[in-house]
Amino acid sequence: MAGKIATRGAYGKALVELAEQYPKLMVLDADLAKATMTKDFAAAYPDRFFDCGIAENNMVGIAAGMAACGLKPFANTFAIFAAGRSYEQVRNSVAYPHLNVTVVGSHGGISVGEDGATHQCTEDLALMRQIPGMLVLNPCDGNEMTKAVEALLNYEGPAYLRLGRPAVETFTDELEGYKFELGKGVTIADGTDVTIVATGMMVGMARKARELLAADGISARVLDIHTIKPLDEELILKAARETGAIVTSEEASVLGGLGGAVAELLAENCPVPVVRHGVEDTFGRSGTANAVLEYFGLTPEVLADKCRKAVAMKK
């Protein structure tokens, strides 16, 4: 696969490719099919695509009703509306009755870019993780996204799937021994001094940070945590015990998301230094995706600095 594709692009392709095999799959959108990349599914399977208009809360409710009747709806909109505006519909109409709905939040994080703060959702991972029984997924590249969609089609229960807007390098397809399993993290690269626990597009940046650290003589392990919930506690605890320091990295608020989940886990079970890398407690701003990522410090360089800090805290 190698090359670059946005996870939303891989998602849109996967829906089309898997549609025949999974006849219960229904796709709902809220007037964003061209952006969430459900448009190809809409064209190929018009009888299984439902544009609910600019009315996200109703879309989530419709998905709940469909699921209650045995269908497998994927409800699509931007992350800010899926997890933000419709938070309570997801909580009460989907998750409380544990219905088989996948809520898809496209354009997650700040790499939305130019649209700015109103559309940059940094809270979705924390909000969705709070809901009992939710599966929360944030795949790192196109290959992983494809596998996540298929895994979701074989999963029964409420789920949140985050998609990213910009193209990111695909690398998991060339990773030896790579296997996708819901709730299981992936060791992307081994290391002994510190572990970067990353999710989404930050996994790719963690690989680059690892190279920067290697030049300093620091050996960093990199874990890809595509499933924020349920968290692969075993893998993270093992990394904490073996490397003695953890840096979490996510294109999301440092409050309550992956960083929060890992800090909670380690504080109670294996207290080692934990440094959280992500968007600090602030709103986003407009700019190209790269400019915004740089502005908020979501770069391999800043991530490497966070790792140096964590290593220093071990002493």
């Binding site: 809360n57 998905a63 709940a64 009703g65």
Partner: peptide, 21 residues
């Protein structure tokens, strides 16, 4: 047939059920 209680949400689920039929 549907968990409700948060006002305003039930009718959407009913619409989804009718669509499923």
């Amino acid at each position: 047939d549907m968990s409700t209680g948060s006002l305003g949400q039930g009718l959407s689920a009913a619409v989804g059920m009718a669509m499923a039929a």
